[in-house]
């Protein structure tokens, strides 16, 4: 199968119905994209196919032939991190980190489509599951990267040591 992954043409020995997730992880060793549920319910496997956020665990590899697939490994580079990656660190988003590749790819697709997302836009786009509960920091980081502000309801002091 001839695929285009992160701008590179690659050839793999892949059955047509094998989900893209396993091509990436087990055949190409691009392990940044995660397995979480296998039924498109959690979003840990989110990648971009022609710029759209797609859940790769239920996307047969044959469907992405001739399309551009991008994974977390090409979201930014060491020299030039994506604005979301910088925001993620500034807001100290990840805990265990396992779902975060998918979160970032979903957020990047959102910003590409809607550079100034509202809280409602973020609510609608970010349906990824995080068991560590990083949600409010994910929201804050998306706003930070977009240069937008949260509604008063969503914004609040996060920590404070009382005298």
């Amino acid at each position: 199968m001839n695929l285009t992954i992160n701008g590179q043409a690659v050839q793999t020995d892949t059955p047509a119905d094998m989900p893209l997730l396993w091509v990436l992880r087990d055949q190409l060793h691009l392990t940044g994209t995660k397995f979480g549920c296998g039924v498109a319910a959690c979003g840990a496997c989110t990648v971009h196919v022609d710029g759209q956020a797609v859940r790769s665990c239920v996307t047969p590899a044959s469907l992405v032939v001739g399309k551009s697939v991008r994974t977390i490994e090409s979201l930014g580079s060491a020299e030039q991190p994506h604005a979301l990656q910088l925001a993620w660190i500034a807001e100290q988003v990840p805990q265990c980190g396992y779902c975060q590749s998918g979160m970032l790819m979903a957020a990047a697709a959102l910003l590409a489509r809607k550079p100034q997302p509202s809280d409602a836009d973020i609510d609608a786009a970010m349906t990824n599951i995080c068991r560590c509960g990083t949600y409010q920091r994910v929201r804050a980081a998306i706003h930070r990267a977009a240069g937008t502000t949260q509604t008063a309801l969503q914004s609040s002091a996060r920590q404070e040591v009382s005298a």
């Binding site: 940044g32 490994e73 979201l75 988003v93 990840p94 980190g97 975060q100 590749s101």
Partner: peptide, 9 residues
């Protein structure tokens, strides 16, 4: 541990 957790590594 966060740099590695935002770039997939």
């Amino acid at each position: 541990d966060l740099l590695a957790k935002v770039n997939g590594s």
